[in-house]
Simulated assay, not measured.
Amino acid sequence: MTSTPGMSQTDVVVQGIKKIIVDGRLKAGDKLPIEKDLAEEFGVSRGSLREGVRALSIMGVLETRQGAGTFVTALDSSLLLAPMGFVVDLQDRAGAAYLHTVRRVLETEAAALAAVQIDENALRRADAILRRSEEQLSQDEPDHEAVLEADIAFHHLIAEASGNPVLVALIDALGTRTIRLRLWRSINQEGADEATHGEHRAVLEALAAHDPDRARVRMAAHLFAVEDYLHTRNPSPEALSPEPLPDLREPV
């Protein structure tokens, strides 16, 4: 393989293996050729080859099995997009707001798709999730961790019901638990939990009616409420900082 000027040997390996997979010489589940042959094909040292393989393993493209060799993974979307979650978690306050906007665009369309395809079993599970939130919100001191977990589960279920695994992976990557906590902690309005729960119920009603337009609008309204609050209140950098903070308020 001919390297581009300025490209490191590790990059040559990464691009070379990617090309082999794209060209169909290697498919999901296939074992890589022996190290000596690959190093010669790419014109790199064995050390650089190992570095490239390690990088692709971190990306979820390859996996090394002890005593068996290195294999192409299933190339599943959720696996390949998982590293995006790390990038999302490292965003600052402004970056988090931009990510939320992208998430809102994706989730509104996921809700519309889900309204067409969701089955009764998924609707029952979604209702059970919201009932768990209701139980917590009825307590004098709700377990905000439990409310957050229910919120994550509800949004994930809708994404799955869209029937598009790439969309699911993108939404999960953009809405990591860490970024949700930061957004949640930045919104401390009285009654925010209850308002969010009502918005979730409205989304579920649209899904149960199999009305894609209504589902799209109600999901957008739910996520716009968070987005508008972030823009109008302009929370301090500390509110979206990675350090643990004690209070949890609105699920997002």
Score class of each variant (00 low, 15 high):
64 T>N: 14
68 A>N: 13
104 R>C: 05
11 D>C: 02
16 G>Q: 05
179 I>F: 01
84 M>D: 07
108 T>N: 08
252 V>N: 00
221 A>E: 14
2 T>M: 09
202 A>Q: 13
219 M>H: 05
118 I>S: 06
65 R>S: 14
156 H>S: 10
78 S>A: 15
108 T>R: 15
151 D>S: 15
207 L>Y: 04
83 P>N: 10
184 W>D: 04
164 N>C: 05
194 E>M: 10
22 V>W: 08
5 P>W: 04
124 R>V: 11
46 R>F: 01
174 L>T: 12
57 S>Q: 15
35 E>L: 08
143 D>S: 14
107 E>Y: 00
18 K>S: 12
231 H>R: 13
100 H>N: 01
79 L>F: 04
67 G>A: 13
154 F>W: 13
5 P>H: 08
55 A>W: 07
191 G>C: 06
175 G>N: 11
159 A>P: 02
146 A>E: 13
122 A>R: 13
113 L>N: 06
236 S>P: 04
132 R>G: 15
102 V>E: 09
125 R>L: 10
105 V>K: 03
78 S>C: 08
34 I>E: 14
18 K>I: 05
237 P>C: 04
43 G>D: 02
12 V>P: 04
242 P>G: 03
155 H>N: 14
161 A>N: 10
87 V>T: 11
114 A>W: 09
115 A>Q: 07
156 H>G: 07
223 L>Y: 00
201 R>F: 02
192 A>P: 00
37 D>G: 02
31 K>V: 11
23 D>Y: 04
90 L>Q: 13
185 R>T: 02
1 M>L: 08
232 T>Q: 11
250 E>L: 03
223 L>K: 00
147 V>Y: 00
7 M>D: 14
124 R>P: 01
53 V>Q: 15
135 E>Q: 13
87 V>I: 15
78 S>G: 12
115 A>K: 03
106 L>V: 01
30 D>E: 13
27 K>R: 13
88 V>K: 07
228 D>I: 06
23 D>E: 15
174 L>F: 11
33 P>Q: 05
123 L>E: 12
77 S>D: 15
193 D>A: 01
214 R>Y: 01
169 A>M: 06
46 R>K: 15
11 D>N: 09
16 G>L: 06
169 A>I: 06
147 V>A: 01
210 H>Q: 15
171 I>C: 08
110 A>T: 05
22 V>H: 08
233 R>H: 15
132 R>H: 11
193 D>Q: 10
87 V>K: 05
138 S>G: 14
170 L>W: 03
171 I>D: 01
103 R>S: 12
167 L>E: 02
4 T>N: 06
181 L>T: 07
196 T>P: 00
